[in-house]
Write a protein that binds this DNA or RNA. Structure first.
Length: 334
DNA sequence: GATCCACAGGAAGGGTTGGGGG
DNA sequence: CCCCCAACCCTTCCTGTGGATC
């Protein structure tokens, strides 16, 4: 029943952008100058997860690359990456056989600056960078254009302002709202047409998947994928409502949870796991839970760093005020 | 108002790792 | 093969903050 597995993957660049015409036009306008050899505008895409930011950026850049010969493009997941790691990731994608892996951040930056081709770099989860100076440095390069992706506009600009100041306010901001039920259903129809045999799933089943996903396209596509896999395993040629309700939703949620966990380093993951299911914890309980988990006597200071990062990543909530501080692991993907 | 307490996080440094170049 | 360098891990030391207590 699955005819095109890529259509059911959340990280596939979609063949077309569904119901995001206004954002697509804004991005195309911002990038337009490069068609005439000019410099595109720095652009930031803001919105909740699963709202189509990454898909739109990648699709837009792919289209542009098909039109313009002399540009390079790079896509970087910024989550927890250092300044050097971001530059290296970009260079790796635009210079075949780049061989200065162990050089420092400044050397990578110089190598990027000296290139004569223009590069459009998508910085996904730009608000999760270890060091915001990376955005500043890339912003200063005349031959690199940034498309940044982040959840919330005020937070990103506040953090950037410390570095780049008002200059970045000239960047183009494109905002995305959570998908409506209709929009999500339309996306699922497109994916089903693309990836599944004809009539493998009814429109009403797609509508219930859209309801279960609560506006999150990543979750919606994951549910469709889980349901299709379940149907295949069960030897059926149609996805039914009950497959969605009984298996697919849970499968998809735990799969997304695993994906988020996989992004954490092993120490962060172990702290998160030590906190999961413990409810609200005091500062001391967090320290003890981590030490018990790793069976090692690490310092409080180190655990504070791990915990802070989990808070930044949205995996742990910070509750109460200073004297009555509590932390709680968040069990749903944000 | 001064002091205390618990907590957050900056700065600096030692140890380790891993790739590149001599 | 070894040395250098950058990055990373984790520690120690220390300052700042805001509410509680005297």
């Amino acid at each position: 029943m699955i005819t095109q597995a890529d259509a059911l993957r959340i990280d596939t660049v979609p063949r077309k952008i569904v119901r995001r015409d206004s954002q697509m036009n804004q991005l195309a306008n911002a990038l337009q100058p490069v068609v005439d050899g000019g410099r595109p505008e720095t652009t930031f895409l803001f919105g909740p997860s699963g709202a189509g930011k990454t898909s739109l950026a990648r699709h837009g850049v792919q289209k542009l690359k098909a039109e313009v010969l002399d540009i390079d493009t790079a896509y970087v997941e910024c989550w927890g990456r250092s300044r050097a790691a971001v530059f290296r990731r970009i260079i790796d994608q635009v210079e075949t056989g780049y061989s200065h892996e162990s050089d420092g951040a400044d050397a990578h930056l110089r190598d990027l600056r000296e290139r004569d081709r223009h590069c459009i770099a998508i910085l996904d989860e730009a608000d999760q960078l270890d060091d915001y100076a990376a955005i500043h440095d890339l912003y200063e390069l005349p031959n690199v254009t940034i498309i940044g992706i982040a959840n919330r506009e005020p937070e990103l600009y506040a953090k950037l302002d410390e570095r780049i100041g008002s200059r970045v306010s000239s960047a183009v901001s494109i905002t995305f709202d959570t998908y409506t039920h209709d929009e999500l259903t339309a996306i699922l129809e497109d994916r089903a047409d693309w990836g599944l045999a004809p009539n493998a799933v009814s429109r009403s089943t797609l509508a219930s998947i859209a309801s279960a996903a609560g506006g999150d396209a990543r979750l919606a596509i994951s549910i469709l994928r889980a349901a299709a896999k379940h149907a295949t395993t069960a030897g059926r040629d149609r996805i039914t409502e009950s497959m969605v309700d009984e298996y697919a939703i849970d499968d998809a949620e735990s799969r997304l949870q695993e994906l988020t966990l996989a992004k954490l380093s092993s120490d962060h993951r172990r702290l998160y796991q030590a906190m999961l299911g413990e409810g609200e914890m005091t500062v001391g309980e967090v320290y003890d839970a981590y030490r018990a988990e790793v069976d090692d006597d690490v310092t409080d200071r180190y655990i504070r760093d791990l915990r802070k990062k989990l808070v930044d990543y949205g995996r742990v909530e910070k509750l109460g005020n200073k004297q009555n501080r509590r932390y709680r692991a968040v069990d749903k993907p944000s």
